[in-house]
């Protein structure tokens, strides 16, 4: 069996769109299960009171990373055919900072705001309105900032290629780092237990 399936012609683009819909259902389902339709729970990450963002995100990253690693080592998945977003390091750092501001100001990111809106939350719906406005503004000011957007191009590059660290070693290091992060997260939650918004397990809106 050769993967990615679509690159080996197992099905065409139209079937790919159906796959996208089904994969999206899984994505939305697990985001909602985790409580990520709740903007307050998400924001509590940044007050060290509910560390679910870090835990869910890094568990997902190491799960998928290990899967990709072993499937590629065993020759099932051809990594050269998996799309890697090209790196433009400076605009990505600045964009990340702005996005981080938006996360703590608004309480969501685009994916989680969809789940919030789908479960009837007004703040999630209005956040999506904001995202659409922000994207519109970017397009309109592109002639002014296009140079910066395209600055510092490094091409499609992984950390292992950039830092010259063997792929397997880096995978192992990321797993260790995530486990350390989980331990620190559990510690922080215990320390802040009882404070407003700590360890939200259910809906908490007024």
């Amino acid at each position: 069996m050769n993967a990615p399936f679509i690159k080996y012609g197992m099905f065409g683009d139209n079937v790919g769109l159906i796959v996208a819909f089904v994969v999206g259902i899984g994505f939305g389902f697990f985001l909602e299960r985790a409580g990520f339709g709740n903007g307050k729970k998400l924001a509590m990450q940044f007050y060290f009171r509910d560390m679910a963002v870090l835990k869910v995100m890094f568990t997902a990253i190491i799960t998928a990373m290990l899967g990709v690693y072993f499937l590629s080592v065993f020759g099932v998945l051809d990594l050269s055919m998996v799309y890697l977003v090209p790196t433009n390091i400076l605009p990505q750092i600045v964009g990340g900072l702005i996005l981080g501001f938006g996360f703590v100001v608004g309480g969501y990111c685009p994916g989680t705001s969809c789940v919030s809106a789908a479960t009837g939350k007004i703040d999630g719906m209005m956040y999506i309105v904001g995202v659409i406005i922000g994207i519109f503004i970017f397009g309109e000011v592109y002639p002014l900032i296009g140079n910066f957007y395209n600055a510092t191009p490094m091409g499609q590059i992984t950390i292992s290629e950039w830092a010259n660290i063997p792929y397997g070693v880096l995978v192992f290091a990321v797993v260790l780092m995530a486990l350390g992060g989980f331990a620190a997260a559990e510690w922080a939650e215990k320390k802040n237990a009882g404070k407003e918004g700590s360890l939200i397990t259910e809906r908490t809106d007024a």
Binding site: G95, G96, L97, I98, L99, G100, F101, G102, F103, V104, V105, G106, G107, Y108, C109, P110, S113, M126, Y127, I128, V129, G130, V131, I132, I133, G134, I135, F136, I137, F138
Partner: peptide, 9 residues
């Protein structure tokens, strides 16, 4: 927050 998120993304 959404506007910042959209622009940053």
């Amino acid at each position: 927050g959404g506007v910042m998120m959209g622009f940053g993304a």
